[in-house]
């Protein structure tokens, strides 16, 4: 099966390992993720102002590219891209007035009607858990804290799972032979873009979240967002400066666990 794939800027840079592992893992379960021929930065955080259509152009333009490439479904692995594209697509389906303005502004593009469906790889995985189990060569064995963050779950309209108590990632981890720990902070914000302006907020969030996972017995944290990954992993150095006793935890993308359990060798 082939599906359209929207990487987003960060899967080409900091989160290259996310892209590489995801493409390999999906290939193993019979899904080819085909990168859009052309795509643009989605604009990350969805604009919330009623009148700020400018910040939604990029998302709509990407959906037009997906349609042009013949994809009914567009897979967006980065949680922020997923959220932005999905919310823009909901707008395209429900807000006629906004879309008529956007379509008129983008006079060099065909009109967009909201017909591409934006999905997250975890949603694809949910339907493939049997195949995934069957593909496992080296069961994981460790204990993981599944961290969803915000943007796969909120606002409710775009949630990939039950928004207060999601379980897709846990089910994946178990299918891969790992065990999961109770993790109350699994959907608490990592501080997001505060990392660019107000690092303390991210340091505090990191400390809270990782400590909570450790206390619950986790050996590692699993995530699907390159910004969560950065804030939870790279910022541990900074946390240690403030809290010398802080022990930290490794942080992985869910797809890294998949390739590990499937026994796929990654280069580099």
């Amino acid at each position: 099966m082939e599906m359209g794939y929207y990487p987003g800027c960060t899967l080409k840079t900091n989160a290259k390992v996310f892209e590489d592992s995801l493409l390999k893992a999906f290939e193993k379960i019979g899904i080819k993720l085909k990168e859009l021929n052309k795509w643009y930065c989605c604009g990350t955080v969805y604009s919330l102002a009623t009148d700020n259509l400018m910040y939604r152009l990029a998302a709509i333009r990407n959906l037009i590219r997906a349609k042009e490439d013949g994809h009914e479904k567009l897979v967006a692995p980065c949680s922020i891209c997923y959220n932005t594209l999905k919310q823009a697509n909901l707008m395209a389906k429900s807000d006629e007035e906004a879309m008529s303005k956007i379509n008129a502004f983008m006079d060099e593009e065909p009109d967009y009607d909201g017909s591409v469906s934006v999905i997250h790889p975890l949603e694809v995985i949910e339907a493939k858990l049997q195949e995934i189990k069957a593909a496992v060569k080296k069961p994981l064995g460790k204990k993981y804290a599944a961290y969803y963050g915000c943007l796969l779950l909120r606002p409710k309209e775009i949630a990939i799972d039950e928004h207060e108590n999601p379980s897709i990632m846990e089910r994946l981890i178990e299918a891969l032979g790992g065990s999961v720990v109770n993790f109350p902070l699994k959907n608490e914000c990592c501080g997001s873009y505060n990392v660019a302006s107000n690092k303390e907020a991210v340091i505090d969030a990191n400390y809270r979240i990782i400590t909570n996972a450790r206390r619950n017995g986790a050996d590692a944290i699993v995530t699907s967002c390159p910004l969560c990954h950065f804030n939870l992993k790279e910022m541990q150095k900074e946390v240690k400066k403030v809290h010398p006793e802080f022990a930290g935890l490794p942080v992985y993308y869910f797809s890294e666990l998949m390739v590990e359990a499937f026994g796929i060798e990654m280069e580099g």
Partner: peptide
Amino acid sequence: NLPQIAIVSATRKY
């Protein structure tokens, strides 16, 4: 050297 995702978000919010 922050990830693109952080810089783009910062431009949008700040």
